[in-house]
């Protein structure tokens, strides 16, 4: 029963959040602030993870190809498809769920327990829309760029570390990257990214916005935000894959 209650509360929350901003100037200011704090600030961690993820993928695949009948360019192909289909959109989004989700939930939770949200409401501000809408839209806008960067870096990491390990040659790897390329995979990845961006930001905002109590509860709601957004993200990943690739 509790599940349905929470779900209902979540959808009502989304209704509050998606209402027209009361002041567009403020909205845009906040939007670009969030693009920077949720997006650009996550770039370093995404770059590092993508490079090494690509590296590990390439080396693993190369070592696992023992049959002489499988051409070596298959390493490039396998790396490419794994990165496009799952590693960049899903794993990077999961990492963002941890980083961005906990920061959104604790920021809003803190504002809730120190009555800053009440102060906004008393002024006549729609606090849900004012605080949360810029975050959701900023993530939906910036995350696809982050994921595309991650894709390129993942493949670059595969090439660089594959060469260093001596398991592939540039020619074979690049040939593999281009071999039997399905452009739809990129669209598929970006659609997933946008859905995940929405889920991560809205779910974490939900838990922060309705936090109750003090510092302890803010911590709890921040943990919940990460756990729930990760689980629901993976669930959505399964559903989207089923729907779009079958």
């Amino acid at each position: 029963m509790k599940v349905f209650e929470t779900l209902g509360k979540y959808f009502l929350f989304i209704g509050i959040v998606f209402s027209r901003p009361q002041q567009w100037k403020r909205f845009w200011k906040q939007f670009f602030f969030e693009v920077n704090s949720l997006g650009i600030n996550s770039l370093p961690i995404i770059m590092i993870i993508s490079l090494f993820m690509g590296a590990a993928l390439t080396i693993q695949t190369a070592y696992n190809i023992t049959s002489p009948f499988i051409p070596l360019y298959a390493v490039g192909l396998a790396t490419r498809d794994s990165i496009l289909l799952e590693f960049s959109p899903t794993i990077i989004s999961l990492i963002l769920a941890g980083k961005v989700g906990s920061s959104i939930a604790s920021e809003l939770g803190m504002m809730r327990v120190t009555e800053q949200i009440d102060a906004l409401e008393i002024m006549g501000v729609n606090s849900g829309s004012f605080l949360v809408l810029p975050k959701i839209l900023a993530a939906i806008f910036i995350n696809p760029f982050l994921i595309v960067i991650s894709m390129f870096l993942g493949m670059a990491g595969g090439l660089i570390f594959g060469l260093l390990a001596g398991v592939v040659s540039t020619h074979e790897f690049v040939y593999g990257l281009q071999y039997a390329f399905v452009p739809f995979y990129v669209s598929y990845a970006l659609i997933k990214t946008v859905v995940f961006a929405f889920l991560i930001t809205s779910i974490s905002a939900f838990f922060g916005y309705y936090a109750e109590g003090g510092a302890l509860e803010v911590g709890v709601s921040s943990t919940k935000a990460v756990v729930y957004s990760s689980i629901i993200l993976l669930l959505a990943n399964y559903l989207l894959t089923q729907m779009m690739l079958s």
Binding site: T114, Q116, D118, A119, M123, G124
Partner: peptide, 18 residues
């Protein structure tokens, strides 16, 4: 929301935007 635009409130804890 409409009526609240005529409100001013000082919270016991201040509730400043930090």
């Amino acid at each position: 929301r409409l009526l609240r635009k005529d409100f001013g409130m000082v919270f016991q804890g201040g509730a400043l935007f930090d």
